[in-house]
Every structure is written in C-alpha cells, then in structure tokens.
Amino acid sequence: MIHTLYKLLSGPMMWLAVILFCAGTLYRLWTIFRLVRRKEKFICSYLSLRYSLRSLVHWLTPFASLNMRLNPVMTVVSFAFHICLLFVPLFLLAHIVLWEQAWGIHWWALPDLVADIMSLVVPAACIYFAIRRIRKPEVRYVTGVGDYLLLGLIALPFVTGFYCRMQWPGYGPVMLVHMFSGQVLLATLPFTRLSHMVLMWFTRSYMGSEFGAVRHARDY
C-alpha cells in the first residue's frame, strides 16, 4: 500500500504538481499582462530598469529600507524564512539524489547540518508569523483563516521532511505526507497569496519606477 502510494506520489503526482505550478504561474502572468495590454498600457511607458532595480535591491537587501529597520525581528525572520524556503528544496542532498536517479543530473548540495537547521527555520518562522498574526492587532485585523492555513501548508513539508530525515518512528507514512504536502504547496502556489513570489517583481518594479523616474523620491 505504502509502496503503491509512494510510486504514485513520486511519479504522476509529482509531474502533476510541477505542471500545475508552471501552468498556473504562466496563467497568472498571462492574465496580468493581458490586462496591462488591454487597459493599462501606460504602465509600460513608466517602467524604468534603473529604478526598478533600485527598488528591488533596496527591498531584497536586509535593512536597506526604512520599514525593515523599524521592524528588525520581522526583517531577520522574513529573510531567513524566504532564503530557507527556496534553498532547502533545491539544494537538499536527499532531493538531489532523486534528480540523479531519475535523470542523472546533480549539483551542489547543502551540508547536512546546514540543511537540517534551514529546514527547521521554515516552520519556526511560520510559528513566528502565526504568533505575530495573533498578537499584533493591526495584523490580526486583516488576517483570515486562509492566512493561517497557508502558514500550515508551508510548514508541513518541512516538518515532515525533517521527521523523515531523522528517521523517527513511522517515518515511512510520514514521507508520503511530506511528498503530498510539498506537491500541494507547489501546485497551489500560483493561485494563493504566495503568488507574490511571481507578482512582487512587477508591483515592486512599477512602484520603484514611479517613485524613481516620475516622483524623484525614495520608495524604501
């Protein structure tokens, strides 16, 4: 039973998740660009590479913007969270081994201890975000059930992955949960608020361009 499920999850389901992620991302981009072309063409005439980059660099460098300096804990946690979230799935040795087995390709892997720590940073950050949502009135006020579910959805593959890595009791079925939750996260990403992973580059660039090229002021 477990073996069949493993086959299913490591084969067709993985493909499905990747296809949904890619297609979903392309669909989101296509709908946004179509709207720009149909209704807000002027956006393109204000976009400036220099000021888009100025804005992106200031918001992708820790403490380079005023708001990051005002919220140091949030800044550290956010950066750690995003870096770990992106790096662990791609540079974990156990994942690279799978790539090697399937397609014979491999690349640099994170040292085990570093990977272990980074895997734990993600759920820890999710707990911090959840506590922040509960404790800070201005965040609680705009938080819905979906925001907590998203945090859970992100934390789950990392918690289960770490569980399997440690080979704690019953890690076999947990591996299935790990794979499935990771696939759900990947497949739904373009359709949830996590789509900021894709859209942020454009909203940030537009704000940066407006502030830099038109308004001659800082947006960070």
Binding site: V36, I43, N67
Partner: peptide, 29 residues
C-alpha cells in the same frame, strides 16, 4: 485592470503598512 488585480492578490496581509499612517498612529493604533 492589472494594477488592482496584482495589488489585491499580492498583499500578504502582513500589516507592515500600519506604521506609515498618521490616522493609525494617532488613533491609539
């Protein structure tokens, strides 16, 4: 169009904009 759609779906409800607003800061947060 695109702006509103992108803004609404990108917002992660983080509340980090609150500190910017004098109405918020002045009305006891």
């Amino acid at each position: 169009g695109a702006r509103l759609k992108a803004y609404l779906s990108t917002c992660t409800h983080c509340g980090l904009c609150a500190q910017a607003c004098h109405f918020y800061l002045s009305n006891a947060h």
